[in-house]
Simulated scan of single mutants.
Amino acid sequence: MGFFGTIFEPIENLLHVVLQALYNVTDLAGFGSYGVAIILLTILIKMLLYPLTVKQVKSMKAMQELSPKMKKIQEKYKDNPQVMQQKVGALYKEAGVNPLAGCLPLLIQMPILMGMYYALYNFTYPTPESAAFLWLPNMSDPDPYYILPVLSALTTFLQQKQTTTEMNQQMKIMMTVMPLFIGWISLNFPSGLVLYWVTMNIVQITQQWWMYRNDDKKKEAA
């Protein structure tokens, strides 16, 4: 399993239990489906982590909004690092922004997200029939039609674009490279795992729209 797989094994086992329970719910409803169970589990996890997601996304967006001011300070005081640090600290304080505020929620979420990765990567479906979902003949195998890899790249791009305001050249490159990289590695991942990633992105996009719906109304009014 490897070092990291061993670390996240307790979370992986717990998620296997929850996934099986959700499958049983779909079975009782008359359409037993591990694909639906994966989608439900992903939505459940994202809803539980929503308070942390709010803190992480808002902190990230606040840092992006301060980026132009920080750049001016860095250019003005590039020969005096001590003053530069003081000015940047004052800028954070004035804006009520903590540069580390977005890291803690991510660190708390990471074990769960990694556990979900291993839970789906290593999941063994009871029968070949139960491993099928929609156009996917077997969710243990990569998507033979490349639909999910394309969706993984597209939803990753949309999710990044939604939270990115001011962009420097590096961020523009990252917004292009990261979705392409996710899509590329998804070509060889079990389709059940990629289904989780796509669902997670869609839920994240929906949550972020909900967070900033009032901001969008204010922009339209202005």
Rank of each mutant, 00 (worst) to 15 (best):
Y92R: 01
Q208A: 10
I202D: 00
Q109G: 12
T176P: 06
G102N: 10
T206V: 14
I182G: 01
T199Y: 04
A119Y: 02
E220M: 14
A95N: 09
E75V: 00
F181G: 02
Q82M: 14
N80T: 14
L100F: 14
I185M: 09
P149W: 00
P68R: 14
T176S: 12
A221W: 09
Y23F: 15
M167E: 15
M139Y: 04
R213V: 02
Q82V: 12
P99K: 03
I173H: 08
T176I: 14
Q207F: 09
L14F: 13
L154V: 15
N122V: 09
S140T: 12
P68T: 14
I112R: 03
L19S: 06
T26N: 07
I147C: 11
K76M: 05
S186W: 01
M84A: 13
I147A: 10
W210T: 06
N24W: 12
R213T: 01
S59W: 04
G192Y: 01
E166S: 12
Q208N: 15
T165Q: 11
K87C: 04
F3C: 07
M116S: 06
I7A: 03
Y146Q: 02
E65V: 12
I11R: 00
K61D: 04
M178F: 15
P99H: 04
M139I: 08
F189M: 13
G102A: 13
Y117W: 12
K218Y: 05
N168C: 07
M60G: 13
M63K: 03
Q204C: 06
N80D: 15
T53R: 04
T176W: 11
P149H: 03
Q169H: 11
I182F: 12
L158G: 01
M70Q: 15
L41K: 01
L154F: 13
A62C: 10
